[in-house]
Design a protein around this nucleic acid. Structure first.
Lengths: 356, 356
DNA sequence: TGTACCTTTGTGCACGAACACAGAATTATT
DNA sequence: AATAATTCTGTGTTCGTGCACAAAGGTACA
């Protein structure tokens, strides 16, 4: 273990005072060409790593960070993301961080547009975005780019933007894997119903599109000739959903398997239970409280987890280390796709009851 | 956010100096009854949390920690555990920690006995143990208990010991889940071969025993009448293994599925490839480099991961926080049992290429 | 030459816990 | 009662960084 290089050591080597080194390290300006070159020369020779503990103590300035995501429902996906974000803040409790959270209705493009336009004008040091609508997100990001404000995506990433980083599942692979898992537990060529959300003012969520593509590609690649029945799912008019489901089950077709490309599997589980429909295999996204319950009861066979706590935690941690220590940032971060059954579900609760 | 309570604040409230508060907080003695009671009274009212950054800076003493586990092979399970341990040390690079690592041959009880007896006499502040042989581990732990040295288990836990904590998979559930997964992808009542390590001087690893129990319990609970063929696996005489496998495949029985209760699935994959045996479904433990390769080639269908990096990381982190900050410790820590397929394996490499 | 202004540089303090050390208070011993 | 020994307590230093502030050096202009 080589002995640590301190700012004062660099100063001595470069023949200046620690104040000047500090100004170069933090690009604070007011440094002569000669001094800057001397210091940069030394910095290239030695491997200076600031003592993060001392930095954290000495830091006087505060940071304002804005977080915008779809609305947070209790025990659901976005709550986990926010839990992760707050968890990261706990690690930096001695740094003054002002957090502002704005949520929008992920099924209503006007809500998103309204919130994003509001945010765009605010003062901030950085932004975390849970994107849903590509166009609106691109607009917001353009404004951030102009103002040189770094932003990080969680849950998914959007093309034609320049985020500092993103934390997201590979949604295509996700759909692909769902197809493999569901077909492995149903008879060959059995019908499969796909449950998919519809939204106002836009076609479909970018995540859902990718998952569906992955799903159908798997079936094609493996020459599966299962008949795919698509059921819409409406958030704005929830009363319609029962109708969609009854139509499905009243048709003459057998429905041995249901694939839920979003996290609303518990809704279907409830319908099946209320209508005494048995023997339907089901796979669904995300370990929401309701889904976990349905999984434990055996109504859902597989849940796919995408580490929402980790996504939130890492995006905030990455951001803070970038802002405070100018740490290098890994841009593309695909998270784990956890396959969850009633057997291993109990071990997936890291952030709920303990500290990472 | 309530303002932080500092040692000096507590001192003022109790009417003493910060030095005395420090002595109480660290149980350093030399404090009068009256002062101690006054300070403890204040401590109960206020929620004092030391600033870990300042603690880390101010800490002058060093800690000696011993780690003992089975031998480390490249790209294998125990290497990941040690990676996690070192990763935790990086977070505490400013704390002086002297680490000593002792490995033993996990298939040879005499090797373990020898190492454990050696370790028992050494000076140390804490111990991390990857246990294999129950008797030997109990003996070591007894000596640690007598000397008031805290120890933490990784990989598995041993009855009749009093560890500070353990990080382990629930190996029973692990075997149970393996049974469910393998039976879901093979025909009903198909034969299943189980591949199990044998060791000198002892019956079987405690982890393997638990996994096997979970496995057979699943089959019983679900009234599966699959015929189970047990194949031994010898580490001390590896030349025998080919023979065991050829006997299996030369018998008149069909072998549609192989379950590997340890992490040596790649060995079987190689055998099958060399002998042009196809169509065998296989499930195996752990994401060793060789197993991941076999998984990607399609020779293994499922791998079960047990977060070895996290186990090592957490055990060391827990230990350090206990030693340095006297943080409370959660004793029982069952890690995730990750279900890995060729689709999601690429996302399970957190510690390999990035920092948590 | 004197004043105003800007650029550049060095010095010094704050952050809060850990611990060393000196000195005060109390108890024990002669 | 005087001294020695012990117990107890307060003060002061240390850690390395961030940043405020003051001062020095230089340039421009009346």
């Amino acid at each position: 273990m080589q002995k640590k290089v301190r700012i004062i050591d660099i100063a001595k080597m470069a023949g200046v005072s620690k104040g000047t080194v500090d100004r170069v390290l933090h690009s604070r300006g007011n440094v002569s060409e000669a001094a800057r070159i001397a210091i940069e020369g030394v910095l290239e020779k030695v491997n200076y790593k600031p003592n993060i503990h001392v930095s954290a103590i000495s830091l006087k300035r505060s940071y304002k960070i804005i977080v915008t995501t779809p609305e947070i429902s209790l025990g659901a996906y976005w709550e986990s993301i926010h839990n992760g974000i707050h968890h990261a803040l706990e690690e930096y409790e001695n740094v003054k961080i002002e957090l502002q959270v704005f949520t929008y209705n992920q099924y209503d493009i006007y809500s998103c547009r309204h919130i994003f336009e509001k945010i765009a004008g605010f003062e901030m040091d950085a932004l975390i975005v849970g994107p849903t609508f590509p166009e609106e997100t691109i607009n917001l990001c353009k404004k951030m780019d102009d103002r040189d404000i770094p932003y990080i995506f969680v849950d998914s990433t959007i093309d034609s933007t320049a985020p500092l980083a993103f934390y997201s599942a590979d949604h295509y692979v996700c759909g692909f894997m769902m197809a493999k898992l569901i077909t492995s537990i149903i008879p060959e060529n059995a019908n499969i119903a796909i449950f998919q959300a519809v939204r106002t003012g836009d076609k479909s969520a970018n995540t859902t599109v990718l998952r569906k593509k992955g799903f159908t590609d798997y079936l094609e690649n493996n020459r599966c000739s299962n008949l795919i029945l698509t059921i819409p799912f409406s958030v704005t008019a929830p009363e319609d959903n029962e109708m969609y489901l009854s139509r499905l089950f009243q048709s003459q077709r057998e429905v041995p398997a249901i694939v839920v490309l979003n996290s609303r599997g518990n809704f279907i589980a409830d319908y099946l239970e209320a209508n005494h429909i048995k023997g339907v295999r089901m796979i669904c996204m995300d370990l929401t409280a309701a889904n976990v319950e349905a999984l434990k009861k055996g109504q859902i066979d597989y849940l796919i987890g995408q580490e929402p706590e980790y996504q939130g935690f890492s995006s905030m941690k990455t951001l803070l280390e970038y802002l405070i220590f100018k740490s290098p940032v890994k841009k593309q971060n695909y998270v784990q796709l956890d396959i969850i059954t009633r057997e291993n579900v109990g071990f997936y609760k890291r952030f709920n009851n303990t500290v990472y």
